[in-house]
């Protein structure tokens, strides 16, 4: 089975639809969404309703901090993110808002764990961006492979034979076998707002028969996505950063 893993879509319809088309061409059999479907971008309803639709066809989705922030306190967000959430809350239709409110923080699927951020305290939205936070997250689950998002930069961590943690920046398009005798944590990167100075949308495919994890980059119509953010009156920084990939 080929699982397409997508997270941090952030209301970016252009990036999301480009990734869905790409994954379908790659023969993805299942979609797993790793949270943060809204915030920052201008198409929250389209994105959330598309995900809701896919879940009725077997897709899996967990909640991210932006999804949980709708209608709740958001004191921990920066000004632009907070504004985007206010705006999103005002735009979101009822079915979309209800869908977001039902999403769980974690889902276990065979030997895999899906979570938006760190798995040890999933509601605290801790970034998994270096070996120590990866170790904490891996220590909190018995699942062999954890897939998460939140950081917006693709990264791979593995527990070695002597319980050390290795880290690796996966190259787009090059499959990495997640050796069965070890445990792994993959940060899949962001569909809607990549931050590794590469503007192309990031997602990943995991092949359960070969245990191969492949990080992927998909160029999309950044200009249109940024134009919609400006037209919606959202902060300019949220539009400008898309073409810079940061």
């Amino acid at each position: 089975m080929r699982i397409a893993l997508m997270g941090d879509i952030h209301s970016n319809r252009e990036a999301f639809s480009a990734c869905l088309a790409h994954a379908s061409e790659c023969g993805a059999d299942r979609y797993v969404f790793l949270g943060d479907y809204v915030g920052y971008g201008a198409d929250p309803n389209w994105v959330v309703n598309r995900i809701a639709e896919l879940t009725t066809e077997g897709a899996i989705a967990v909640a991210g901090n932006h999804d949980r922030a709708i209608g709740i306190e958001r004191s921990r967000m920066n000004a632009a993110a907070g504004m985007a959430i206010e705006w999103t809350a005002s735009q979101l239709d009822r079915t979309a808002a209800e869908f977001l409110s039902t999403l769980p923080l974690t889902i276990e699927d065979e030997d895999r764990l899906y979570v938006h951020a760190d798995a040890s305290r999933p509601g605290d939205w801790i970034y998994v961006d270096e070996t120590a936070s990866a170790a904490a997250s891996l220590g909190a689950t018995r699942q062999r492979v954890t897939f998460c998002g939140h950081v917006h930069v693709p990264m791979l961590f593995g527990i070695t034979a002597t319980q050390k943690i290795l880290s690796f920046a996966p190259l787009a398009g090059s499959p990495v076998p997640l050796l069965r005798q070890r445990r792994w944590l993959a940060v899949v990167g962001s569909v809607g707002q990549p931050r590794d100075r590469n503007s192309a949308a990031a997602y990943a495919i995991y092949d359960t028969s070969t245990c191969e994890f492949k990080s992927l980059r998909v160029p999309y119509d950044v200009e249109t996505a940024a134009g919609k953010i400006r037209a919606a009156g959202l902060p300019e920084s949220l539009a400008a950063r898309l073409s810079l990939g940061r």
């Binding site: 791979l156 070695t160 034979a161 002597t162 943690i165 290795l166 880290s167 090059s174 990495v176 076998p177």
Partner: peptide, 11 residues
Amino acid sequence: HAALPDLMEEE
């Protein structure tokens, strides 16, 4: 391999 993690280096 440039596209694979180096298990020896970490270990």
